[in-house]
Design a protein around this nucleic acid. Structure first.
Ligand code: ZN
Ligand code: ZN
Ligand code: ZN
Ligand code: ZN
Lengths: 154, 154
DNA sequence: CTTGACCTTAGAGTTGGCTCTAAGCTTATA
DNA sequence: TATAAGCTTAGAGCCAACTCTAAGGTCAAG
């Protein structure tokens, strides 16, 4: 039976994150000590590792919840349900890639047009393109709200 | 002189968003009526359109702020400053694309391995891969926090 | 028997870019 | 003149997935 920080070092999730996942129904400690400490058995650890793997792939916590409910009774669920979740995620990823590639293309064109030198930006072609709005940004408009965030840790 | 909703329909930004941008220093109404209504002149409109174009490309509001401060005095800034901002953005975009492509690859492999049929998920290869953690998710781990958000409107 | 590492909880804060609400004032139209 | 549409403000809420804080309880080592 592992304590929360031991589960943390085994899975690479912080105790904070483990409690957060518990609050959202993803992970549970099958036992608690009298003083309230969480204790995780092998089955709990396997579930937590499943969550970690799914998260690393990029599934949302909501997706992971669905995958977990399939996991607890596989006879009640089909391969199709699993592929539906996976394909939906892949569709999202593909859409996002397309948006980012549109941004990439636009930014590259802008960079190619500008000398990038130390002279005054008076005739800078990037500035001119932005002024004139003659920028091929089709597809990029929807892309950038949350496109460039990061997660710090593993 | 345009009122805020007129500037909105000209630029495709909502009045709410215009006020939000004003609060963040991107856009200003050069005049106010006695009753406090914002009035935008041609120069204001051009600035707002610049902001809209830059936003559509994918620049952050912070980036746009920097571009705007170059715009107001181009003699005091160089092409290099402009390309630095642009290149930095391109680097972010490229990094994000790489992460998403890693996710894409993993998801595609999972999908290829599963029959996707109506039978019970007992021997589902996607579930097995998630259980075993033998999933090639290198690079995807950092990717997904904010990767799949959306902005609704233009 | 004290130190320090670890555990508990509820709840607030972070990020970026909006998006909306409430409560009230102004303006245009019929 | 009445009604509706539009404007003002400060400030709250939203999204996801954490991340941290405060204030306290627990436990093993020396
Ligand atoms: Zn130049
Ligand atoms: Zn230039
Ligand atoms: Zn199957
Ligand atoms: Zn399957």
């Amino acid at each position: 039976m592992l304590k929360i920080s031991e589960l943390g070092s085994r899975t690479g999730l912080s105790p904070h994150t483990i409690r957060f996942y518990e609050k959202h129904g993803l992970i549970k400690a099958s036992e608690r000590s009298e003083s309230g400490y969480r204790y995780y058995n092998d089955s709990d650890v396997r579930r937590a590792e499943f969550v970690k793997t799914a998260r690393n792939i990029g599934f949302s916590l909501d997706d992971i919840g669905q995958l977990l409910s399939i996991r607890v009774d596989k006879t009640a669920h089909s391969c199709q349900e699993v592929t539906d979740i996976t394909r939906h995620k892949l569709d999202e990823v593909n859409a996002k890639i397309a948006e980012l590639q549109s941004m990439q293309k636009t930014l590259q064109l802008l960079l190619d047009s500008c000398c990038g030198g130390p002279e005054q930006a008076i005739h800078c072609s990037i500035m001119e393109a932005l002024e004139d709005g003659n920028v091929d940004a089709s597809g990029a408009a929807k892309a950038h709200k949350t496109v460039l965030g990061k997660r710090a840790k593993s």
